[in-house]
């Protein structure tokens, strides 16, 4: 919403400069409107209120909390107002959760992006049943995490349909451990994250003019060369954005880590640690510290991806994008 205002601002500022030299004959109201100041600004009000009340204030408050460690913390770790942060890095039980979360979120994000590419490619062309297939792929968006978790437990649990079927036909003689561990959370994250990745990559792909690929074809490039030399470089910025999105979604995993994971072991993710500090230890400042560090870790990963992306071509790709 701020973009058009800013866009209008630049030429208006130039016009303003000219008006300052001569005496402007336009009314005050007209001149303000030229700078984007008019009644329509009120339309931004709800967004502004929400941003302040629900984000800026609580966020600042939370950051403030992290610098007010409990006496117990200060006693154990010292370092004055920094004691929560010291605890975060020194306390292996807490710090390990960073790697535990990474170990889940990175492979899931990578899987979602890599698997979406060929699917989006195939679904670019028109064929019978395309709509049905797209719907099927996107449908999991409508399922909540809890429903997905419940389904996974019933389907893939020790006494679930899948295990009973496999035992029945004699493929296995011990039920497979597919839920209440790392795998269960991974399945759940893929189910909820894949539709987003697929939809995003599809739209990025449709933004690439198909005649660019046709041109490469007439110039003698086979499909591997076309993909590697033309499509992939043009798609890369989109892949980076998609990766960031599914990574952030997976990194903040909480319900499925508890419901289909191993909440005290393999899937002791950061969000669970923050919840534990807040709900069980009633240590609000430490909970805030873990939440802030979650954001920091995500920002680091995003920064790395964006850095890689900035080395890519980012301009127009000629399509309907």
């Amino acid at each position: 919403m701020s973009a058009p205002t800013a866009g209008r601002g630049t030429p208006a500022a130039r016009r303003g400069g000219r008006a300052a030299r001569g005496k402007s004959t336009a009314s005050m109201r007209h001149r303000l409107a030229e700078r984007g100041v008019d009644v329509s600004l009120l339309m931004l009000l709800p967004a502004l209120v929400f941003a302040v009340v629900l984000f800026i204030y609580p966020f600042s408050y939370g950051i403030g909390l992290t610098f007010q460690p409990t006496p117990a913390m200060q006693e154990q770790w010292g370092a004055g107002i920094w004691s929560n942060y010291v605890a975060f890095f020194r306390d292996g039980f807490i710090f390990d959760s960073v790697w535990i979360t990474m170990r889940l979120a990175l492979p899931v994000a990578l899987f979602n992006v890599l698997v979406s590419i060929p699917v989006a490619f195939k679904l670019r062309h028109r064929f019978r049943g395309k709509k049905a297939l797209t719907t099927l792929l996107v449908l999991p968006i409508t399922l909540g995490t809890v429903l997905t978790a419940q389904g996974l437990l019933i389907f893939a649990g020790r006494q679930g349909w899948l295990n009973r079927f496999l035992l029945e036909i004699g493929v296995i003689d011990q039920p497979l451990q597919l839920v209440n561990n790392y795998l269960g959370v991974m399945f759940s994250l893929i189910i909820s994250g894949f539709p987003f990745a697929f939809l995003l990559i599809s739209s990025y792909l449709s933004g690439i003019d198909p005649s660019i690929e046709a041109a490469a074809k007439t110039m003698g490039a086979d499909w591997k060369q076309r993909f590697r030399r033309i499509t992939l470089p043009l798609l890369a910025p989109g892949l980076a954005t998609t990766f960031i999105l599914t990574f952030v979604l997976a990194f903040s995993v909480f319900p499925s880590a508890r419901l289909v994971g191993d909440a005290s072991g393999e899937t002791r993710v950061m969000a669970l640690m923050a919840y534990r500090a807040f709900g069980e230890l009633l240590d609000y400042p430490m909970a805030s510290t873990i939440a802030v560090m979650m954001g920091v870790v995500e920002l680091v990963v995003i920064a790395v991806v964006l850095l890689w992306r900035s080395s890519m071509y980012k301009g127009s790709t000629g399509g309907k994008g």
């Binding site: 003019d209 660019i212 046709a214 041109a215 074809k217 007439t218 086979d222 043009l234 071509y313």
Partner: peptide, 19 residues
Amino acid sequence: AAEKRGFGMVFQNYALFPH
């Protein structure tokens, strides 16, 4: 196949490789 015909083609929208 198109890539083996050895014809040159000029497209209406040029279809240059933008990157």
